[in-house]
Design a protein around this nucleic acid. Structure first.
Lengths: 231, 231
DNA sequence: CTCATTATTTATCATTTGATTATTAAATAT
DNA sequence: ATATTTAATAATCAAATGATAAATAATGAG
């Protein structure tokens, strides 16, 4: 049979990609494409479709990963590792800078580092499937972001420290609300595919301003109620 | 959204359910269970699993629906029809009541009517799969809720009407932020399965209060910038 | 060049899954 | 009771899908 030239994998215009890659590079290539593929189609995406996207045959995947599940595990690690910047925890509570500046800077950096196409979609896919990663992550957000934010709000509004009067559920809910307004923008963009023309950094500045200039009296009321309840 | 816990897979059928049902009742039964089933597992849920949940054999589904797709179509109609209350459009703009009351009432009623386990999960599943329903729905929210809200905010803060100075993207983004903080609570509950002990109505009241007491100056600034840009 | 190594492909297996057909049995009519 | 109708099941098909085994061909060593 004649050896007809193999049809090129759909989109590799720059380098004609030699047929045989060194194993490390091939594995990296597979993982990189798998990240995008599973972010787009979810973890029930078919291995044959993934292989076609990569430009290899489906069985080759199994030379690099013993099972689809192990590949997914690898993809998880690739996406969810090292996105959190530990410096953020100090940033939020470093009172040398004004609170509005701290919150704006944190949420700008956080949104830029975390809320991209891959992270958001995988996070939501995982949530729907009930993977534990979401629960753990949001518990971290609660302790490392929302509670500290509530504490800083207390300080800015001349209210008792969380040590004196514990942070109540409704108080925390205020911080969840701010957080959610930012996450929701990512959802609109990456899940609902709505084109958001508004600049994200500017929107963050505006929403933080609205929040900070309005939260004082409401928080005071909640803290007083909480205090009364305790005593 | 308030007190609708995750529906349990039917475990203890009260009535031993006679084997042979009348066709209308059987169809209704299938649809009702399919709604819960697809909300939980997504539309790639297997027909055999669905049948097992219903307590029938898988081929029986095909006596009532010609294909899985047609059943899904039916489920969509069941979930997405008649949840929007047309009276809400008037509620938001009826200036006989104070704006805080209107916003609180609207979002309480809206959250209760729309944000339940089934609606939220199907909406997100559909978004991930790129079904057009989301785009259309959110376009409706924008025109029927967010723009009117912006208009009422203009009025409450003594700013020019949207007719005089069109509503800008960043201004609209403020309203998206408020909206998102409520939707995000539903996401936390139904997608991430976090137990939210805080009462939903109270949280809405608090967040509306924070928003309304802080939004004035920010909106004024945005409107003035928008006005300058136009002239 | 010749040959060994191994990255990659072709062919294929065993389940799964949406869907169809043939059979069974429950309800109703006579 | 007997017969008729049809809701429901059992058996099965064909395509899809995760995974494996055998065959092929690109690369480097001697």
């Amino acid at each position: 049979m004649l050896d007809s030239p193999k049809p090129q994998a759909k989109s590799a215009p720059e380098r004609p990609q030699k047929k045989r890659m060194n194993p490390d590079a091939r594995e990296a290539h597979i993982v990189a494409e798998a990240v995008l593929f599973f972010a787009e189609h979810g973890f029930e995406g078919k291995t044959r479709d993934l292989a076609k996207r990569i430009g290899i045959t489906q069985p080759l995947l199994y030379r690099y990963f013993p099972s689809k599940e192990s590949l997914i595990e690898r993809v998880y690690q690739e996406v969810y590792v090292q996105r959190w910047n530990p410096a953020w925890e100090d940033l939020i509570t470093d009172r040398r800078a004004p609170l509005p500046d701290r919150l704006c800077r944190f949420y700008k950096e956080y949104s830029r580092a975390v809320y991209d196409y891959v992270w958001v979609r995988m996070f939501v896919y995982s949530g729907l499937k009930g993977v534990d990663i979401n629960d753990r992550y949001l518990r971290g957000i609660k302790e490392k972001v929302l509670r500290p934010v509530c504490g800083e709000l207390r300080h800015a509004n001349g209210l008792p420290t969380p040590g004196a009067v514990p942070i109540g559920e409704q108080e925390l809910e205020l911080a969840w609300g701010l957080h959610g307004s930012f996450f929701y923008r990512a959802i609109r963009r990456y899940i609902y595919n709505l084109t958001t023309t508004a600049d994200s950094d500017t929107a963050i500045e505006n929403e933080v301003r609205v929040f900070l200039s309005g939260v004082g009296p409401v928080q005071r009321q909640l803290v007083e109620a909480q205090d009364k309840q305790d005593s």
